[in-house]
Amino acid sequence: EAHAAIDTFTKYLDIDEDFATVLVEEGFSTLEELAYVPMKELLEIEGLDEPTVEALRERAKNALATIAQ
């Protein structure tokens, strides 16, 4: 499951495998979680700032909209 989540994140969020791995290690496994989890939870991840989190959430929401079509 972790590998599938990493693949999904790299494909749809335009991030590298290392960043995707950090997200999975922090407990995220779906685009929905990244799109809708409280921003505070993402900001608790070391190295993430508000602009990065906002961009990540926007990419996740856009990916979900694209997949739904």
Rank of each mutant, 00 (worst) to 15 (best):
E1G: 13
E1L: 09
E1V: 13
A2D: 11
A2C: 09
H3P: 08
A4C: 09
A4W: 09
A4E: 10
A4T: 13
A4M: 11
I6V: 10
D7Y: 04
D7R: 07
T8D: 09
F9H: 01
T10N: 04
T10S: 06
Y12I: 05
L13H: 00
L13P: 00
D14C: 09
D14P: 02
D14T: 04
D16W: 06
D16N: 09
D16R: 04
E17T: 10
E17H: 12
F19E: 04
A20T: 01
T21D: 04
T21E: 08
T21M: 14
V22F: 14
L23I: 04
L23H: 00
V24I: 12
E25F: 08
E25M: 13
E25I: 11
E26D: 06
E26M: 15
E26R: 15
E26N: 15
G27S: 02
G27V: 02
F28L: 07
F28H: 03
S29L: 15
T30F: 05
T30H: 06
L31Q: 00
L31S: 00
L31W: 01
E32P: 03
E32G: 07
E33G: 06
E33S: 10
E33R: 06
E33N: 05
L34N: 00
A35T: 07
V37A: 15
V37K: 12
V37G: 14
P38N: 09
M39Q: 08
K40Y: 12
E41W: 05
E41L: 07
E41G: 07
L42F: 09
L43Y: 07
L43H: 05
I45S: 03
E46W: 10
E46F: 15
G47S: 08
L48R: 02
L48D: 01
D49S: 09
D49N: 09
E50K: 13
E50H: 11
P51R: 14
T52E: 07
T52K: 10
V53W: 13
V53C: 09
E54G: 09
E54R: 14
E54H: 07
A55E: 09
R57C: 05
R57I: 14
R59G: 07
A60I: 08
A60E: 01
A60Y: 00
K61L: 12
K61Y: 04
K61P: 00
K61H: 09
N62A: 15
N62H: 13
A63Y: 03
A63T: 05
L64G: 03
L64R: 02
L64I: 13
L64T: 03
A65L: 09
A65I: 13
T66D: 11
A68H: 14
A68K: 13
Q69P: 08
Q69H: 10
